[in-house]
Design a protein around this nucleic acid. Structure first.
Lengths: 147, 147
DNA sequence: TATTGTTATACTCTATAACTATA
DNA sequence: TATAGTTATAGAGTATAACAATA
């Protein structure tokens, strides 16, 4: 096996490789629900913040309006969410009963996935690492949609 | 700002968000060299392992043969690398003089990028984190190309 | 038979720009 | 003027399948 140590100290490289492995695992786990990772994150965010708008959701998840539109349309066409006009231009998002059931299944799948990918870390270690990673991006400008 | 704490403990989510921010920074930094992150990683790997083949390179970087082909073709058409037949089917990869110069510039850009993204961590912390992340994916099966 | 490299193609997610409608 | 939502389009990276040539 060739020497890899060039990338050993490159944090950006390690983060990218890990992200690929982890997201592939999650995508596989969600596939039986016909859900993609981005769609699952939308379900989680709506469940926890019922009534928020598409724009708020996008800012929360770092997804641009232009990319949020088809995501939401897809979930609505599956009757997982509803849109209630609140403003004439804004629409409040809610989970339907089917949406809640789907959310519950996605949550279970996601927790099993976390266990599969990070089970080698103790609970305290996991939380510490999550916070450490969070600080490295959450402090950023976070524009997301100023175009 | 809506409550985000749903994702606070989800390591997969934190890794993905961080990866996006970090890779966007690297892509911007490499753009003036007309290099994409994947191409830069190829330059780094060839520089450190001169003479390796495309397949070896792919296994090292987790890039499939099918996706490696156009990457290598692009770098060769820019005269950054050469291919010397070694086998009739395998080809040894080397950096040209232009390729070495490009590698040097890419390395400087990447180091500045690491400093920009992870400068808030002490050197020891950075290495510890890099090793922690590495362990979470490097232990995996690592098939990459058994199809 | 297994491996190397190539081509074609599809998918996920992101990004930008332009547009309508509303506040 | 600024915001909400939509559409169209392009880009980077990944994945699979099939193929030719070689070992």
């Amino acid at each position: 096996m060739p020497a890899m140590h060039i990338f050993d100290g490159l944090l950006g490289y390690q983060i990218r490789r890990l992200s690929l492995v982890v997201m592939a695992d999650l995508a596989d786990a969600l596939a039986p629900l016909s859900l993609r990772p981005a769609e699952a994150s939308v379900l989680f965010a709506i469940e926890a913040n019922s009534g928020l708008t598409q724009s708020e959701l996008g800012r929360m998840l770092g997804i641009k309006r232009a990319n949020m539109a088809p995501l939401i349309a897809g979930l609505e066409s599956r009757a997982a969410i509803t849109r209630d006009a609140v403003d004439g231009r804004s629409q409040a998002l809610h989970l339907t009963e089917e949406g809640k059931a789907l959310h519950a299944r996605a949550l279970a799948v996601t927790q099993a996935h976390e266990e599969r990918c990070f089970g080698s870390l103790a609970n305290g270690e996991r939380l510490r690492l999550a916070r450490e990673l969070n600080q490295l991006w959450a402090c950023r400008g976070e524009s997301v949609d100023e175009g």
